[in-house]
Amino acid sequence: MTDVSQIVPTLDVSRCSEQLFNSFDEANLQCADIAALSETMGQLTTRLRRPADEINGFVDALRASTVPKRPQKMSDFAKEVEYFTSGDSELDRCLFDGRGIGTRSITELCGASGVGKSNFLTQLCVGVQLPRLFGGLDKNAIYISTEAGLETRRLNEMVRAVREQHAHSPEVTVSAGRVFCITCSDLESQEHILTYQLVHAIRTRNVGLVVLDSIASHYRAESGGGQGSATSRRTIDLLRCEAALRRAARAGCAVVVANQVTDLFGSETSLSPRDYETHGDVFALDMQTRFYSGWKWPDGDERPKLPAMGQIWASSVDTRLVMRRQGMEDDDGQPSSTVGRRTMAVVFSSRLAPHEATVEIWTGGVRYCQA
């Protein structure tokens, strides 16, 4: 029996007769077979014993139902994209072309633990609530946490800071209650929420921003090691996750995902670009990763790092932001979250030029500061 009605339930069959579908059943032709044989119409007419015009009408309807409709011009797509402030106008100017975070795309923010990723993501949840007059979208945010949950104390501090900044503007109604928090305890619950619940929540709760903090947590914990079958399964899961986030982006949201990093090991990482041209292969993975990872070669004592989840995930995002911190130890040589120079950089983007800015963490979130 043919699977056309199950594979393409939205198919317009007004131009097709019942006899044509009976012919599909008799010839045992599935949807994939019909699509493949449509290039050679003679074989289809021979196997189905139906008029060529009728088969052509069905093939046209099949293509119309399966091929996604895209904007005719890039300008048409650009009109659909909206922007909202990152929470700091100087940071918007330095990194985000003066506009801020764009909707209808997936933005990744990666960095080591304690560098300030969650602070910046929480700040975005407040910025998207601002009225359009002040650079926001006047929409709510969804914060999906896979680790420790949203830090409500920091969220309330940022809300108070924005209210104080706009104390004479009664139309500014930012609130911690406009950030909907979801905690995913395992990979199964994460996939269920992203696949079935997220788009419905976006449409019913006036959501303009979706934050996932972080993408790597459950995949690292449940991938089952580096064996071939586990790697293949994780690749499929990542592509499924990317498809779910892409649906949220197409619904008109900005999707911002936090990602962890891992150290880049190996003796070749100490080679300079000129050394690679002399002693190494310029097409080697270690050479090429410097262009999309955010880390080049060791800067002082810092070992270069790689964003987690590999190239499969790297090719799924539209913009990659990297937060780094140098000089992370205090005078006693102990790790500290209050010392060191923090930077945020655009590594690659379909909308923004690569650039780096020095930032600092304060009560109101993350802001630009002079180097």
Rank of each mutant, 00 (worst) to 15 (best):
L11Y: 09
S14Y: 00
E18C: 10
F24K: 10
A27D: 00
E39M: 09
T45Y: 04
L48P: 02
I55G: 01
P68Y: 15
F77Q: 14
A78P: 02
E82Y: 10
T85W: 04
D92S: 05
I106K: 03
N119T: 00
V128N: 04
G136I: 06
K139S: 09
S145F: 09
E151Q: 14
R154H: 06
R163T: 02
E164S: 04
A167K: 06
E171L: 04
V172P: 10
V174C: 05
V179L: 00
L187G: 14
S189D: 08
Q190H: 07
L194S: 07
T195W: 00
R205P: 11
N206D: 15
V211S: 03
A216K: 00
A216V: 07
Q227K: 14
G228R: 13
S232G: 11
E242P: 01
A248S: 05
A249K: 06
A258M: 06
D263A: 15
G266Y: 05
L271P: 00
A308Q: 07
A308C: 15
I312H: 10
I312T: 14
W313V: 07
R342K: 08
T343D: 09
M344K: 03
V346H: 06
V347N: 06
E356W: 00
A357C: 12
T358L: 00
A371N: 15
